[in-house]
């Protein structure tokens, strides 16, 4: 494995409040470029909350307040002057439940490139759609029915469609919030394989409840508990020899 030391995202003292309730407490971590980082922890510990800080999706929740600093490519993103739209086009996101638009498969993938003006001609657009679908490993299954609605696909296919949709806008980072939780083991395996391939080009952060999945796909792992980052580091180390007893307890299934 080629090690690299370029920090892509660096969070410092991130606090998140929902109204009065503190969901994250002083989170600081660095995430390296072109690696898969897994976020694990018991339910409600703030994994999704942290993930949604990175592409500012928390803005949608009115009561949510984020303080601290997150830098992406050394640029501060927790500030009112951040251009959220271009930030989000740089950071793709895949949700827990597949949420394709109720439009055709083609339009689902083409939507991002067209609003960002990535394609000047129709054939450019088609190329982008096809390469994205190919990268998401979905093209062979849907190539004959690009005009059918995206919602007619199976759950696993829908999730890959959402991945294709995310990579069509050429992001550098992909956030995945429990992308496999609604899928069966076979579809899960396909997505995991896909993540492994995508790692070559993208920085990936994945939230998962499956220890095995975290162990299989990630290089780095961060363990959250009650809104705090308890431990982070090489996946191998966390899973074989964690420093913290809480981490130990969690991964061996003693709580959570």
């Amino acid at each position: 494995m080629v090690e690299n030391n370029n920090t892509k995202i660096s969070a410092k003292d991130v606090d998140v409040f929902y109204s009065e309730k503190q969901a994250l407490n002083k989170i600081s971590m660095d995430i390296k470029e072109k690696e898969v980082t897994a976020l694990i922890g018991p339910s409600g510990c703030g994994k999704s909350t942290f993930l949604r800080c990175i592409n500012r999706m928390n803005d949608l929740i009115e009561i949510c307040k984020v303080t601290g600093s997150i830098k992406v490519d050394n640029e501060e993103i927790i500030s009112s002057s951040t251009d959220v739209v271009s930030l989000r086009s740089k950071i793709g996101m895949v949700f827990q439940k597949p949420n394709p638009f109720p439009k055709s498969i083609f339009d689902n993938v083409a939507y991002g490139p067209s609003i960002h003006g990535l394609a000047d001609t129709k054939s450019d657009l088609e190329n982008i759609v096809i390469t994205s679908l190919k990268k998401a490993g979905l093209y062979n299954e849907v190539k004959d029915r690009l005009n059918e609605p995206g919602t007619s696909l199976s759950g696993g296919q829908q999730q890959r469609l959402c991945i294709a949709r995310a990579i069509a806008v050429n992001p550098e980072i992909i956030l995945m919030d429990e992308p496999c939780s609604a899928l069966d083991p076979i579809a899960t395996a396909i997505i995991e394989e896909l993540i492994d391939e995508l790692r070559l080009n993208y920085t990936i952060i994945i939230v998962t409840h499956s220890m095995q999945q975290a162990a299989r796909v990630s290089q780095k792992t961060c363990f959250f508990h009650l809104g705090e980052l308890i431990e982070s580091g090489e996946t191998n180390k966390i899973f074989t020899n964690p420093d913290n007893t809480k981490t130990q307890d969690y991964i061996t299934g003693r709580f959570g």
Binding site: M93, K97, N99, F101, G112, V169
Partner: peptide
Amino acid sequence: PSIKEGALAIGA
């Protein structure tokens, strides 16, 4: 809301 979130997440 997931539909809107999907669109926002790709930078709409």
